[in-house]
């Protein structure tokens, strides 16, 4: 038996996320429905060093604050379906906008690799990126890629392998907001811990609820309800 690891790909639109997905999975792709939802996401499999990987291509989004259906899909997958690892694909030529999403995802889940894609374009324009510094500051591996030329993919696969087998530990950076916000998070977090178990970051839920994320509330409610029903059915 080989283990199967689920790896989600997230990122802004136009970052070459699908190119990376294609480069990783070749033509072994299909559209799968997950968690009984009508939303279908492209999935592909890949075998590397006797480990089986299932890559899931999440919709390209600018943020993950559930402003749109696509954002809800991406958020729900990362938070509730709990992939073993999330690759955040960012565009080397517009890192500032792309890191905004990456920082949000780092607040939600632990195992993350930042893939700086389109390095070939960046080099053409004389852009150089210090990925070691970024990795240190973000607390997760940062890999430079050019998915269309398959450059950087061996290193990425190696990093994925080392994360899922526990050889690298991710310590994603948590943004410190201003004193007022932090105080509110601190006052709400204990209550979050009473209601939702620790598989979801209580800090993140507290922040989202403070922000008035009703879509998240709804999702939490339905997921808790299904849980109750399964418990009832079993007893």
């Amino acid at each position: 038996m080989t283990d199967t690891f689920r790896i989600a790909l997230a990122g802004n639109p136009n970052t070459g996320k699908s190119t990376l997905f294609n480069a990783l999975t070749g033509l072994k792709q299909h559209t799968g429905n997950w968690a009984g939802k009508t939303v279908s996401l492209a999935e592909g499999t890949f075998k590397h060093r006797s480990k089986q990987y299932r890559f899931i291509d999440l919709p390209g989004t600018y943020s993950i604050f559930s402003n749109s259906a696509d954002e809800e899909v991406a958020r729900n997958y990362i938070v509730f379906e709990k992939p073993d690892l999330t690759l955040v694909v960012v565009d080397a030529t517009s890192l500032e906008r792309n890191l905004n999403l990456a920082l949000q995802i780092l607040e939600m889940t632990k195992n993350v690799v930042i893939c700086i894609n389109l390095m070939d374009e960046a080099e053409k324009r004389g852009i150089t990126i210090n990925e070691r510094l970024l990795a240190r500051r973000l607390g997760v591996p940062v890999i430079k890629l050019s998915a269309r030329n398959r450059a950087g993919i061996p290193l990425l696969l190696d990093t994925i392998d080392r994360i899922v087998s526990g050889k690298i530990a991710c310590e994603p950076v948590q943004i410190k907001y201003d004193g007022e916000i932090e105080a509110r998070i601190a006052s709400l977090e204990p209550f979050v811990k009473q209601v939702v178990d620790d598989r979801i970051s209580s800090r993140w839920i507290a922040l989202r609820l403070l922000d008035g994320d009703e879509s998240l509330l709804k999702e939490l409610n339905t997921r808790l309800k299904t849980k109750e029903e399964t418990v009832c059915n079993q007893s």
Partner: peptide
Amino acid sequence: MQSELAGRSGDLNQLYERAQQIAS
């Protein structure tokens, strides 16, 4: 299933109200 969560939904709505009271 991995998507299962412990907790009760009634508490959740209370939690949300609490959050909204202190939100800006």
